[in-house]
């Protein structure tokens, strides 16, 4: 579909408001659980692809419906790659560092299923987005 005017663009934007609210603040009406995996060159070279694959297979195995695994860019925390952010409605988005394949099941069990973040992997987010 072609976007031919700014109004059409804004309409598309509106349709995505739930998505934005979940992504940014963990709010809104979206029923999805989002798993954002940092998949820039730096992340991939420290194993983010394996992490992403592990999430996809394990979420499928656990039959967790409504969970989306999404590859995103770099968040700048090279010292803690691979990084993963979990967005669940009603919770502040949680950023994890050093999420190797081995840590994936822990996050799924404890956080996505159990609702309790895996504290020792949580990264402090020390920036504001404009």
């Amino acid at each position: 579909m072609k976007i031919k005017s700014i109004d059409e663009l804004r309409k598309i934007k509106e349709q995505y408001q739930d998505f934005v609210q979940l992504r940014k603040q963990g709010e809104g009406n979206s029923e999805h659980v989002e798993v954002l995996v940092g998949m820039a060159t730096c992340g991939i070279s420290s194993g983010a692809r394996e992490t992403l694959n592990a999430f996809v297979t394990q979420l499928a195995k656990e039959k967790i419906v409504g969970a989306k695994v999404i590859s995103v860019g770099c968040i700048g925390y090279c010292h803690a790659e691979p990084t993963v952010q979990i967005n669940i409605k009603g919770q502040k988005p949680i950023l994890y560092g050093n999420v190797t394949e081995a840590n994936v099941s822990k996050i799924i069990e404890q956080h996505i299923k159990g609702g309790k973040p895996v504290e020792d992997l949580v990264l402090q987010v020390d920036f504001e987005r404009a």
Binding site: I3, I12, K13, Q17, S71, G73, Q85, F127, A130
Partner: peptide, 30 residues
């Protein structure tokens, strides 16, 4: 909290770079 402010990096790590609609949802192309 206040040391970093991300303007150029505002969407990095937040959107799927391979989906233009995620960019539009966050105000892209406006």
């Amino acid at each position: 909290y206040k040391k970093q402010l991300r303007i150029a990096l505002r969407n990095c790590g937040l959107i799927n770079p391979e989906d233009i609609y995620e960019y539009i949802a966050l105000g892209g192309y406006e």
